[in-house]
Design a protein around this nucleic acid. Structure first.
Lengths: 187, 187
DNA sequence: GTTACTATACCGTCCAGACGGTATAAGTCA
DNA sequence: TGACTTATACCGTCTGGACGGTATAGTAAC
């Protein structure tokens, strides 16, 4: 019965609805009513699962952070022990169709957080600092590694705001160029 | 007299106050009252110059877009006719202390726009598309040029949100690396 | 007298969160 | 097996406050 209580993943649906709302209406358009409507639940029901708007955004961020994490692990080649292996996994994970692309990713959470409560960015900050440290210990020139990471961030940024976002063809070539830079020996 | 009417640049002060508010309180903290307080004017005075919140944000975006434009022109070496000259100017302009740095730049306008009204992003979108076109006609590999642009965007992004923002030393090395990539011959 | 404001008051709307209620499922005891 | 209780998963409404925008009366320089 569709209307019965059994909903193992109502929370997930609410988070996805949140991401859709932010993408469609902008960060300012993120209201509890809008999310409830989008998710097809009542406001009360939404607040049952997420006791506050902040909690909802935090859940959104957690969700996509965890998602990227699994993607990263999946792309980390355990056989590969050459310098830059971690950076290459990072690139591959970012270009996997569920991260750097039209699909939602943690950047919508970032957006929502900035509009609602900048303190919600902390988990993202912590994660990025970790990633940066790993990047710098990856055996290749840290400056070049950082440059690649920043380019990926820039791509996410471009997608998110629709600001000169590269098309699929250039995107593919960007990926190649990044991987090449992540393989090239020290100069 | 400080309190007298003659303020050729009250508008400018209001725009700067707006940027400060966004940086301090996040995009959601941008209210007309907050800007008026920050600028040391009354709400009426603020609305005298900017008839609506949207107008204020549009003004903010215009301001920093124009600023970047002059910076770009200043860094364009008229003697230089080698491939990548425009890209190098772009890099230099971005790293000039008034753009990619702790100081406010057009990205705060971007932030404010996303929270208030995504349509306000249009001028930025148009500008970015122009820049991208010029980049691709700059004589060097378009993919590499795009990669550099994205890395710069990523740096702005990192600064804006305080997400693994590189320190001054790495920033300097990043600039060097970008310039090197913008000089290097086609492979 | 026009420009550039200050100061204050006000209106309508939107929104977060609280609250009270409801329906179903799962024990728990007899 | 049925009667009672509790937990879960919601629904729908209400309220208080914030915010955008309007209005108005006054001030001060040029």
């Amino acid at each position: 019965m569709p209307r019965t209580a059994r909903s193992a993943d109502t929370r997930g649906a609410m988070i996805e609805a949140t991401a859709r709302v932010v993408r469609r209406d902008g960060a300012g358009g993120l209201t509890l009513d809008a999310v409830a409507r989008e998710a097809g639940v009542s406001k009360g029901g939404l607040l049952y699962h997420f006791p506050s708007k902040d909690a909802l955004i935090a859940g959104l961020i957690d969700h996509y952070l965890a998602r990227f994490d699994t993607s990263l692990t999946r792309h980390l080649d355990p056989e590969d022990v050459t310098p830059g292996r971690w950076l290459r996994a990072y690139i591959e994970a970012s270009f996997a169709d569920d991260v750097v692309d039209v699909g939602p990713n943690e950047s919508v959470g970032l957006l929502a957080a900035v509009a609602a409560n900048p303190a919600l960015l902390d988990p993202i900050r912590a994660r990025a600092t970790e990633e940066q440290a790993r990047l710098e210990a990856d055996g290749i020139d840290p400056t070049r590694a950082t440059l690649i990471r920043l380019a990926i961030d820039g791509l996410v940024f471009a997608d998110l705001f629709g600001i000169a976002a590269p098309d699929a063809a250039r995107r593919a070539r960007l990926r190649e160029a990044m991987l090449a830079l992540a393989r090239e020996p020290e100069r």
